[in-house]
């Protein structure tokens, strides 16, 4: 936002006009300007270069789940700010801002619904909420999503997007890695499929736990997926990183995921995977 629009938007008696800012979308990849409406109607994929833009939970639910089939699951309550953390800013204040800027109270939200009539519980991580970072709330939402899936005897699908663990919750954020993994083990014991869709970007402790433990691993084209951040790697090895390093296609080449699926094909693909993995369970 330019300084001018910041000032203008802050003045309450001047009506907010449809400006370049909210009419146009500039593609982060090809830098082309597209009508925002056209971009959104195209599932937030750039019509020029096919770059998959980042999308939040609500849009994802709308895109993936059958119309009218779904409802958002209430977020479980957790301790807020367990360490009373403060850096240049208080964590509690950062949270307030993040909550005000987002639809949901933390970075992982579940919905229960259907995909082409297959019942599912689906979790979506919101990169816009403090970089999608995993803290107590994300861990609790993950466990809650899995528990609902076990109750419903249906798959749990997670769309990951995160910079990693939420540092402001210190060791407790790290402990969400084993916590989510316990839930995955319970899913496994219940004989139900756990499906991961990796979206841009998924890195750090999230990748090194529930994002890599799916029975089926899907990624969106071009998504950045890795354990260590690229700057950290570059600082360690002092070499140039290879072309396409840590992108979805690179992971596919290296045997880390099953498929890279275009957003427009994702619903059909998920329905197919669910159909196969759930067929034995229905018959039982």
């Amino acid at each position: 936002m330019s300084w001018f629009s910041k000032v203008r938007n802050a003045i309450p008696f001047i009506a907010k006009r449809e400006t370049e800012d909210n009419l146009w979308h500039k593609c982060k990849n090809c830098q082309e300007m597209v009508f925002l409406k056209e971009f959104e109607e195209n599932q937030s994929i750039c019509p020029m270069c096919d770059h998959h833009g980042r999308i939040g939970a609500t849009v994802r639910f709308v895109q993936m789940l059958d119309e009218g089939s779904w409802e958002v699951l209430e977020a479980p309550e957790v301790q807020s700010d367990p360490l009373k953390f403060k850096d240049s800013k208080k964590y509690a204040d950062r949270m307030k801002t993040a909550m005000a800027d987002n639809d949901y109270p933390d970075a992982l939200t579940n919905a229960s619904g259907t995909i082409q009539d297959h019942p599912v519980v689906m979790g979506v991580q919101e990169f816009g909420f403090m970089g999608g970072s995993m803290g107590l709330a994300v861990g609790a939402a993950f466990v809650n999503g899995v528990n609902h899936a076990i109750d419903k005897k249906c798959p749990y699908i997670i769309f990951t997007a995160a910079g990693g663990a939420r540092m402001q919750e210190g060791i407790l954020s790290l402990m969400q890695m084993p916590k989510a993994t316990v839930a995955i083990n319970q899913m496994r014991a219940a004989g139900l499929p756990y499906i991961v869709v990796l979206t841009d970007p998924t890195t750090g402790g999230v990748t090194a736990s529930y994002a890599m433990l799916g029975d089926i691993q899907i990624a969106e084209p071009g998504a950045l997926i890795g354990f260590a951040g690229q700057r950290v790697i570059q600082d360690t090895i002092r070499e140039k990183l290879p072309e396409g390093f840590q992108r979805a296609e690179y992971l596919l080449d290296h045997g880390m995921i099953d498929m890279v699926v275009h957003r427009k094909d994702l619903r059909d693909k998920l329905a197919s995977v669910i159909d196969y993995t759930m067929s034995g369970i229905k018959a039982a």
Binding site: T207, A208, A211, M212, I225, G226, F227, A228, G229, V232, I233, T236, I237, E239, L241, P242, F245, Q246, Y250, H254, G255, M256
Partner: peptide
């Protein structure tokens, strides 16, 4: 864990 190219390509996460 080691942050390097070969670790990433062999699936560190």
């Amino acid at each position: 864990a080691f942050p390097g190219i070969e670790a990433e390509e062999r699936g560190q996460a």
